[in-house]
Write a protein that binds this DNA or RNA. Structure first.
Length: 437
RNA sequence: GUCCCGUUCGUCUAGCGGUUAGGACUCAGGAUUUUCAUUCCUGCAACAGGGGUUCGAUUCCCCUACGGGACGCCA
């Protein structure tokens, strides 16, 4: 029998915080690992703040990360509705129960919950048993008649048959309130798992929406690979052991268990996140890389539409292994798509100080002109022959030619670069460079 | 201030009484390659401190320090 039911219960605020995303991820992973259900419930009780359009950011971000839900907005489910704003009748029913049992009383126009003044023990899968005593009665229905978070959260977890509550550690001190409520309703509280927080990379405190890397929507905007972000997030507070870090999702699902999550907070590391992204980028199947790249380029100054699709494809094919992120792509391949290129003066001066660029280029051009077909091997052979003939390193030709035809010293393999650029353009650029200097 | 939670290289982590304390990112060298990158090798770098328990503590207990969180008619 398998009846694991977990939920992610965000409040739509207009952005999707990385900490929330990881909470969602851990819930999702646990559901998948146990073959249970992952439920998305929208906690939109604070109508001062919640707006419809805010919801889209959340839904979109979850989908982008590949975290699909079994019940919730768009997909429905037998325990709906999944918006708290649409569940007032449910709350009303439960409020009556509390009143009838003598757990609730009115004061100053609000409804308060009578606290037991006994330590509540939280059975936490990550932290073990944690005892905490609630000292003051607290509001469960506001003066304006709207029920507050603590009440609706517990009522929904009961009525949606939630078995495990996986949430951020910032909720740990709320949990004693919640256990009181579960007890008052005569319900056995679910199991809890309070996961550590994500701290900002610099300075003190948890990550806030203003810190770089804090918002999931920004990763998409910057063309990060969702699988890389997801993989990195898994490793913030959890480890697959075995000295492995980059691993496919199905393997993570297999290995993940909520009880193995760390107790201590983790600091976000932008560099490591980027490292994951480049690893994923490099190992993308080319067709996948190609179609993603086209999307990136469509939103860039480079008018790829004006070029032959096969040419664009060729350019991308020789660049994938050298590229570190999609944001760098337009700049990285720019010289393939412009008439006149600009040369990196600094790099030029540096090369000039080491050897005679002009001579090497003259020698290269002479040999290159007589080449029938420009492909990787013929150019490579040509360069090697020249180097032997003139008694210099092949690097002298390679560096000089790359700088002359691309304007820079960084890029894909020179031999592929020349092939893709084509004999005509290469000669043009060699001539332009020669007359210019 | 009160109450909770935590503490292994700069960062993410492995370790669950006996280890040369392992890996990853970063950084610094080196090798290969045509540059950059990749790949490979090497290096720098950690058990917060003090008491116990034990033949033996990074591992168990206590205290201190430090870090984090919560103390709303926000969620």
């Amino acid at each position: 029998m398998n009846d694991v039911r977990v939920r992610f219960a965000p409040s739509p605020t207009g952005f999707f915080h990385i900490g929330s995303a990881r909470t969602a991820l851990f819930n999702w992973l646990y559901a998948k690992h146990r073959g249970g259900k992952f439920i998305l419930r929208i906690e939109d009780t604070d109508d001062e703040r919640d707006r419809k359009e805010f919801l889209d950011v959340l839904i979109h971000g979850l989908r982008w990360l590949g975290l699909d839900w079994d019940e919730g907005p768009d997909v429905g489910g037998e325990y709906g509705p999944y918006f708290q704003s649409q569940r007032s009748d449910v709350y009303q029913k439960y409020i009556e129960i509390l009143k009838n049992k003598g757990f609730a009383y009115e004061k100053d126009g609000a409804l308060y919950f009578k606290v037991s003044h006994r330590p509540q023990v939280i059975h936490d899968l990550i932290r073990g048993d944690v005892a905490r005593e609630e000292e003051k009665d607290f509001v469960i229905v506001r003066t304006n008649g709207k029920p507050v978070f603590h009440l609706v959260n517990v009522v929904d977890d009961i009525s949606m048959r939630i078995t495990h509550i996986i949430r951020g550690e910032d909720h740990l001190s709320n949990t004693s309130k919640h256990i009181e409520l579960f007890n008052a309703f005569g319900e056995k509280p679910p199991l809890f798992a309070h996961i550590p927080l994500i701290l900002k990379s610099q300075g003190s405190g948890k990550m806030s929406k203003r810190d770089t890397g804090a918002l999931i929507e920004d990763y998409e905007k910057n063309h990060f690979i969702a699988a890389a972000v997801r993989n990195y997030l898994c490793l913030l507070g959890w480890s697959p052991k075995e000295d492995r870090e980059i691993l496919p999702l199905d393997e993570i699902i297999r290995l993940f268990d909520i009880g193995d999550v760390n107790k201590n907070n983790a600091r976000f590391d932008e560099k490591k996140m980027s490292f994951f992204n480049s690893e994923y980028l490099r190992s993308l199947p080319f067709d996948d890389f190609h179609s993603r790249a086209l999307v990136v380029l469509k939103n860039s100054p480079i008018a790829v539409d004006k070029f032959d699709a096969r040419y664009v494809r060729d350019v991308l094919a020789i660049c994938q292994e050298k590229l570190r992120s999609f944001v760098e792509l337009p700049n990285f391949i720019e010289y393939f798509f412009v008439e006149k290129i600009t040369h990196d003066r600094e790099a030029l001066a540096k090369l000039q100080s080491k050897f005679d660029i002009q001579t090497r280029l003259r020698e290269f051009k002479l040999a290159f002109e007589s080449l029938d077909t420009v492909d990787e091997t013929s150019v490579e052979n040509l360069v090697h022959e020249l180097a032997t003939k003139h008694g210099v390193n092949t690097g002298e030709y390679i560096h000089s030619v790359r700088l002359a035809v691309s304007g820079r010293t960084v890029g894909p393999s020179l031999f592929g670069l020349l092939r893709v650029l084509g004999k005509e353009v290469v000669l043009e650029r060699l001539n332009a460079f020669a007359s210019q200097s």
